[in-house]
Amino acid sequence: MNRLLKHREIWLALAILLVVVLVTMRFSRFSQPGNLLTIFNDSSILMMLALGQMAVILTRSIDLSMAANLALTGMVVAMLNAAFPGVPIPVLMALSLVIGAGLGAFNGVLVWKLNIPPIVVTLGTLTIFRGLVFVISGGAWVNAAQMSPDFIALQRGVFLGLPVLSWFAIVTAALFYILMTRTALGRSLYAIGVNPTASVYTGIDVGKTKFLAFTIAGAVAGFCGYLWISRYVIASTEVASGYELTIIAACVIGGVSIAGGIGSVPGVLLGAIFLGVINNALPVINISPFWQMAISGAAILLAVVLNARGEASKGRVILKKAEAGS
């Protein structure tokens, strides 16, 4: 099993390499270290969000509200910064984590205590969170001039040759790697996805674990809210609109099974980088950015077809015969 997983990630890494090589043939400066680091930095927020989403998808759930959570938390933090420029940035960052976790926990409680299917819950909170952004901001924007210089500068700082934003992604990835491979919670997330009924018998509180997964995803989304706003220096109702599906796409391309129980941190990181490379490559090779959406759609379909071939279950021969006869 482990070998198979490694296998899939290697294929994805090769696919990324192939794209980089092909683009470099057209435009030699594409693969210079500086540009590759830019691509990594550009993909950082998506990587973090996709890791949070993975924790949820592993438990056979889905969080459609992450982008709306990001927009809402980002708006709150941006408005606080505009109103009280004196509040130190680390406080705002901690606040974004807490608000995001709170919104995620709200999803989690509905899934845990009321047993409402996650897709319904997060479909509802997606529209609620997005609407609240408009309500608290009155539809107004918070722009660069209203934000304090620190608010904008922090993630752009360079530490050991890498932008701080990239470091956030690296630290988040390390934390998720430890969570998934070295903690009981991580094992529970996988166990629930593989077999919820068996998990109950082994003493895992399925509802509570799902709740924790949603809270983690929410905390990541909230934190990315601060990062997103300070990176693109604009907070509006439309921030990251439709991005929830890009996050899921990164997971799927990275080999996370939507049926739960399968997925790895390196895979998800590669999935996010793959989308980042595509987005960076298109303008370089003079393809209109309008192609971007169709290409990422095709990439998702290709990835899911390849994943399914790897996951194809053995057994149930009798059913296959019945199927062939129909």
Binding site: M293, G297, A298, I300, V304
Partner: peptide, 22 residues
């Protein structure tokens, strides 16, 4: 191809609208 519909249609969602954008 026996694929989960939620993932397939997230993919075709980008694909179909993407073709409109092209």
């Amino acid at each position: 191809l026996k694929l989960p519909s939620i993932v397939v249609t997230i993919g075709t969602m980008s694909l179909f609208r993407g073709i409109s954008f092209i």
